[in-house]
Simulated scan of single mutants.
Amino acid sequence: MVQLGAEEDYEYFNTEFHSRLYRGAHNTHIHDLTVATRSRLAPFRRAQFMLPGRLAKSWQEHDVIVTAIMRGDAAAAGKAARDHVSIVSEASAVFATVDPAESRLSRSARR
């Protein structure tokens, strides 16, 4: 999936991965807050997968998060998660400078 650049398939995996993390917090407030925030940011989250190499990078970031969790290293897991979600603002900045007529995002939205 990642190697093939299957953005839509990966979006499903990505959503499921993050949902499991939220549920794993065992805190209804955090779960509800993150789900609402993800919903608001959905267009930007999808846009990030249009960046070259982003699917593979996201997969690697998920691996760092899971490895830290499995080691019981809360500080490393938190840092890895913060680093991972920061890409949304970076992707937004990139797409703000792209000519809409030339972007893959624009072409896929027209389909």
Rank of each mutant, 00 (worst) to 15 (best):
H26A: 15
A80T: 11
P52Y: 01
R40T: 02
Y10F: 15
V98H: 05
F44W: 09
V64A: 11
R104C: 01
L41D: 02
V35E: 15
E102T: 05
A101C: 04
S86I: 00
T28L: 14
G5W: 10
D9E: 11
A76G: 09
G24K: 06
S106K: 04
L41M: 10
R111T: 12
T67F: 01
L33R: 06
L4C: 02
R104W: 02
A77V: 09
G78V: 12
H62D: 14
H26T: 04
P43E: 06
R104I: 00
S92L: 13
R40Y: 05
P43L: 06
W59Q: 13
M1D: 10
S92W: 09
P43Y: 04
I69M: 15
R40F: 02
I65W: 08
H84D: 10
A91H: 09
D63P: 01
S92M: 13
G5N: 12
D63E: 13
E90D: 12
K57L: 13
N14D: 14
L41H: 01
I69E: 06
R104T: 04
R23S: 07
H26D: 15
A25S: 15
A6Q: 14
F49W: 10
L21E: 03
T67Y: 00
D99P: 00
V98M: 08
R45P: 00
